[in-house]
């Protein structure tokens, strides 16, 4: 459904991505692993339209994503949970979730969609009137995922959902991601916790210095000697 074809992305004169190509098929969990600065976040931000590739093409179900204005990407079914959550801190959980449905066909059904988000994350219902800036880290991550789900996406992109969370919460978030995937939403996951990510992913891409150096089924990538040394610490 998503096809990234040899994109080059620059910050000013500094090249961040160099001919990155990847594909995500419907229903899959695909993960991007790599060290800090390898270009994982840059890839997701380019897919969302926040950054533009200088070369290459991005298509989703036949539509050119890299020619779509950034604010229209979400209405094509691509939702992005950014690194560090990026909630609206002075707004309530309810408002954050509501804004998730802002520019999509989900706007008219937002009450119903929100009920589904609350079933996934009951704690958000209890906190719905609280300002999102006052939530705990785990609750903020849930709120950020919930906000993305409010758009009823086909493809959910998650950037470091486990960042800064306690181990039991990390496990819980990964369980929820698996659940979301089972409900029919395709997942593109960026993670530093390569061990967990490779375990659950159908396929994986390894990014190094802005290039894809390895790709394949999650377990195969996890078994690769270089990956084991560099990212899994084995």
């Amino acid at each position: 459904m998503l096809k990234v074809d040899a994109i080059d992305v620059f910050y000013g004169d500094a090249q961040a991505l160099d001919g990155v190509s990847l594909q995500v098929h419907e229903g899959e969990i695909v993960t991007l692993v790599g060290s800090n600065g390898a270009g994982k976040t840059t890839t997701l931000r380019t897919l969302s339209g926040l950054l533009r590739p200088r070369k290459g093409a991005i298509t989703i179900s036949g539509t050119r994503l890299d020619k779509t204005p950034a604010h229209k990407v979400v209405s094509l079914g691509v939702a992005h949970v950014p690194e560090g959550r990026c909630l609206f801190p002075q707004m309530s959980v309810w408002e954050n979730l509501t804004l998730g449905a802002y520019n999509t066909s989900a706007w008219n059904d937002r009450a119903e969609v929100m009920e589904r988000v609350f079933r996934l994350f009951p704690v958000l219902k209890a906190r719905s009137t609280q300002l999102s800036g006052t939530l705990s880290g785990g609750e903020q991550q849930m709120c950020a995922i919930g906000r993305a789900l409010m758009a009823r996406p086909k493809l959910l992109m998650l950037d470091e959902p486990s960042l800064g969370l306690a181990p039991n919460l990390v496990e819980m978030i990964f369980q929820v991601i698996a659940e979301i995937n089972q409900s029919g939403i395709t997942i593109l996951l960026v993670e530093q916790n390569a061990y967990l990510a490779l375990q659950m992913a159908d396929r994986a891409y390894v990014l190094e210095n802005g290039r894809v150096t390895l790709s394949g089924p999650g377990r195969e990538v996890a078994a690769n000697e270089n990956v084991r040394q560099a990212y899994l610490g084995l």
């Binding site: 339209g49 204005p69 950034a70 604010h71 979400v74 408002e95 804004l99 802002y102 520019n103």
Partner: peptide, 24 residues
């Protein structure tokens, strides 16, 4: 209002607002 919420969202985080589909 929907527009009022969008204005506040842009004030708090432009990129996140764009990701929600708000035309900044």
């Amino acid at each position: 209002s929907k527009l009022g919420m969008a204005l506040r969202a842009v004030a708090q985080d432009r990129d996140a607002a764009t990701l929600q589909g708000i035309d900044v």
